[in-house]
Write a protein that binds this DNA or RNA. Structure first.
Ligand SMILES: Nc1ncnc2c1ncn2[C@@H]1O[C@H](COP(=O)(O)OP(=O)(O)OP(=O)(O)O)[C@@H](O)[C@H]1O
Length: 770
DNA sequence: TTCTTATCTCCCTGG
DNA sequence: GAGATAAGAA
């Protein structure tokens, strides 16, 4: 009999039904903020607790690394909580700090460490580390386990090199960016170069196909994979090799996918293969002790540019489910209550999304009542828009002391918009920008990583070329060209030439001494790769290569900054080694390649978050500013003549609105600077689609007050008692179960129905006695 | 070979 | 308007 598990208290009836689902397929569909992610997370815990499923038999796919990390933390807490009650007979948060730490570490060692939770890319990169040598490529390409993962800029420079150097095409006519995008799209549909040509039997198609072919050949000879390969190669490997598929099918008995509406066909194929072991007939499937559980919302599908296809979500019922009508089906659960947003915010979002024709209507009931008014502000230009944001932030923060800067988000369509906003708020308001230039995209970081990649994977010519003359060591373009053409003639990787002293001496002329010194340096570190911890390798190579010294000599602020960033790389490495119990260089490099800027978002830091609407998917904030609602910007210019693309923009807008919990500000400018020139801008069509009665188009008062709230006193002097009924801004109504400490140091343990027990400092959070 | 200056391209979204 | 890149000078 299943143990009754108190964490089910935090779920409504439909969520509970989803969480308690054990075997077979289940689709959870629901609008924004209805607790889909929570249901998925709790189900993982429930499988382990009540069905004794082994954590290593669970595969859960999230959309971002950050979401994966949070999910692991939640599960860890659930188990630590249970341990606390079993072993100590007490709630976790009421135990002394060191005991809490110990229990969490137990939960990590026993449970979460073994779970396979991550993005498609990180999970399947891990599988490839194990099995890529068994992959048989139809073209005969081969990779080994030390493969390097190329990020977008590596991939683009490879394409560019092919276009200009090898195929001698005009890169004006075929810009490498466009070609790279075409290749990526082809891969995300499982196409080989020949397929591209067959689909597009014209000059353009031939060029794309040729570049693609050469690109793939070079990836292989560099022993490198791009992001798309991390999905595509496992899919091909599983299709061609029954025993490998069988192994992973057996391993992953329970498969869960979050944000299922944004999976693409290849990702679907992977999930399908793992779930069915390649059995095509639905009726032959044996779901004993197995399940597939996906959650999603077709209205939040916003990644079609990455070949995501929300019809995959719509087809789940046919693919896996019983295919019965909604009233009778046992393989679909709908969640219809929204726990995140105020009623007016939700209504605005729902009204907007109804303008899409390609959709299935859903119910999404508010649970939180009307909140503050929604304002739409018309700014003169983008600078004045920034001023508006600044004014509002300062007033709101001033008037609502319970809000800290981390409770605000500013969302925009394109990264380029962040600049002006940053300028407007930087002197008064702490902020963090998510996206744009990623940490791992910075020049100095890429240089450092190139050294490290070269050590683990000497075939990685892209990295080799990046650092062979960085810092300047007198190895010029002519020398490099000589070496490259020799390597091409002999058909060996460039590194093979460079490390061979005699070849270098004949080829490199004056620079040969320098090349040999460089080769010796690299070889010395390669020899010590397994002996030294990763951090020491990094430090050593940065010093001995003269990289750090070179920066120090420059003495500029910029160089200072780069040195700081390199130090940060150092701590990132240490942190990675600790968190993952992995101090190998390979492990760290894979992690770095897959890292996204979103991973740096820290809610606990009290900073306003600036990010794109795409990056905000899955997040929530008490106060949201959605800015730049102008025709051509949002919806974006390129979508205006494509109805499907326009609908996706509208979904993006829906996502933006539904990030807000308490209050939403929308703004647009009448004039905006684009690439240096000023352009008039007309308001976004989405604005006219919002219900007029719920949006206030006049300027918000300088000192807006939270109206609905009764006076929340920040009661330091209040005498709190066990049993008091209280109201909290985020958690709602609850009951005080413990009063901890006294006087200035009083903390309260409050039990919130449906949420659990929280420790609250009444001096920081405003608690109302009711 | 490296540094400086003029010209060109680009920004829609990201693992 | 910035960052990348190509051409020209030291
Ligand atoms: N049963 C519940 N009772 C109260 N609050 C809940 C419940 N379920 C979820 N929540 C809260 O509602 C908010 C939204 O939950 P969650 O992120 O799981 O929703 P979601 O459906 O995944 O959202 P999105 O579609 O926007 O990603 C969270 O703050 C969560 O803590």
């Amino acid at each position: 009999m299943p143990v009754e598990t108190d964490f089910l208290d935090g779920l409504n009836e439909s969520q509970r039904q989803a969480v308690q689902h054990f075997c077979g397929p289940l689709l959870v569909v629901a609008g924004a903020g209805s607790g889909k992610t929570r249901a998925l997370t709790y189900r993982i815990a429930y499988l382990i607790l009540n069905h004794q499923v082994n954590p290593e038999n669970i595969l859960a796919v999230t959309f971002t690394n950050k979401a994966a990390k949070e999910m692991k933390e939640r599960i860890e807490l659930i188990f630590a909580q249970r341990l606390a009650q079993e072993k100590e007979g007490e709630r976790l948060e009421l135990l002394p700090e060191h005991k809490q730490v110990k229990l969490r570490s137990r939960a990590y060692q026993d449970i979460t460490k073994h779970l396979w939770i991550g993005t498609f890319h990180s999970l399947f990169a891990r599988i490839l580390r194990q099995d890529i040598n068994k992959y048989q490529d139809p073209k005969g390409y081969q990779w080994d386990r030390n493969f390097t993962i190329y990020d977008e800029s590596d991939a683009q420079s490879l394409v560019k090199n092919i276009v200009t150097k090898q195929l001698n095409l005009d890169d004006k006519k075929f810009n490498p960016r466009y070609l790279r995008y075409s290749i990526s799209n082809a891969k995300n549909q499982g196409f080989y170069p020949e397929d591209v040509l067959a689909q597009q039997p014209n000059y353009r198609g031939r060029v794309i196909s040729e570049v693609y072919q050469e690109y793939q050949a070079q990836l292989a000879s560099n022993n490198a994979l791009d992001f798309d390969d991390l999905i595509l190669i496992p899919a091909r490997l599983f299709s061609q090799n029954e025993s490998i598929l069988g192994y992973w099918h057996k391993q992953f008995q329970h498969i869960l996918v979050d944000e299922y509406q944004d999976t693409n066909r290849i990702q679907y194929q992977l999930i399908n293969l793992l779930a069915t072991n390649g059995e095509p007939k639905k009726q032959n499937l044996n779901w004993e002790n197995r399940s597939i559980f996906v959650v999603g919302d077709a209205d939040q599908s916003i990644y079609s540019f990455r070949m995501a296809d929300f019809t995959i979500l719509l087809e789940f019922q046919q693919d896996f489910g019983d295919g019965l009508p909604d009233d009778d089906t046992r393989t679909m659960v709908k969640l219809e209550e929204n726990y995140r947003s105020r009623e007016n915010i939700l209504e605005v979002a729902n009204t907007l999304i109804e303008n899409n024709s390609e959709r299935i209507d859903k119910i999404l009931k508010p649970t939180r009542g009307y909140g503050e008014e929604i304002y739409c502000y018309k700014a003169e230009n983008e600078i004045e828009e920034g001023q508006f944001i600044r004014r509002q932030l300062l007033t709101l923060q001033n008037e609502n002391p319970e809000l800290n800067w981390g409770d605000f988000a500013i969302l925009y369509r394109t990264n380029a918009q962040s600049r002006v906003i940053e300028e407007a708020i930087r002197d008064k308001i702490p902020y963090q920008i998510i996206g744009g230039l990623k940490f791992y995209d910075r020049k100095e970081i890429k240089d450092a990583l190139a050294y490290l990649r070269l050590l683990t994977n000497p075939n990685d010519t892209v990295s080799l070329l990046r650092i062979i003359n960085t810092p300047r060591r007198g190895i010029g373009q002519k020398t490099i060209d000589q070496l490259i053409s020799a390597s091409q003639e002999l058909g060996v990787p460039l590194w093979e030439i460079i490390r061979d002293e005699t070849s270098v001496n004949t080829l490199a002329g004056r620079a040969s001494k320098k090349v040999n010194e460089f080769a010796k340096l690299i070889q010395r570190y390669q020899a010590n790769l397994d002996q030294l911890p990763a951090v020491e390798i990094l430090d050593g190579i940065l010093s001995e290569s003269g990289y750090r010294q070179d920066l120090q000599n420059q003495g500029t602020d910029e160089a200072e900054n780069r040195i700081e960033n390199l130090k940060e790389l150092d701590s990132a490495m240490t942190q990675f080694a600790e968190e993952n119990e992995d101090n190998s260089l390979e492990g760290f490099l894979a992690n770095a390649a897959l890292a996204s800027d979103l991973d740096n978002l820290n809610e606990k830091e009290e900073k306003v978050s600036l990010m794109t609407l795409h990056a905000a998917k899955g997040l929530e904030f008490p106060v949201v500013f959605m800015v730049g609602l102008e025709q051509g910007l949002f919806p974006n210019r390129r979508t205006l003549d494509d109805p499907a693309a326009l609908e996706e923009e509208r979904r993006l807008c829906y996502v933006g609105i539904t990030r807000a919990q308490e209050q939403l500000f929308i703004s647009h400018a009448e004039e905006r600077r684009l690439w240096g020139s000023r352009e008039p801008a007309i308001p976004s069509q989405f604005l006219s689609e919002l219900p007029e009665e719920l949006v206030n188009y006049s300027s918000p008062p300088i000192k807006p007050r939270r109206q609905e709230k009764k006076d929340t006193k920040k009661d330091t002097g209040q005498n709190w008692q066990v049993g008091d009924r209280v109201f909290h801004k985020t958690f709602g109504e609850g009951t005080v179960t413990h009063v901890l400490g006294n006087g200035e140091k009083t903390n309260l343990a409050v039990q919130f129905p449906g949420i659990g027990r929280k420790i609250i400092d009444p001096k920081i959070a405003s608690l109302e006695l009711i």
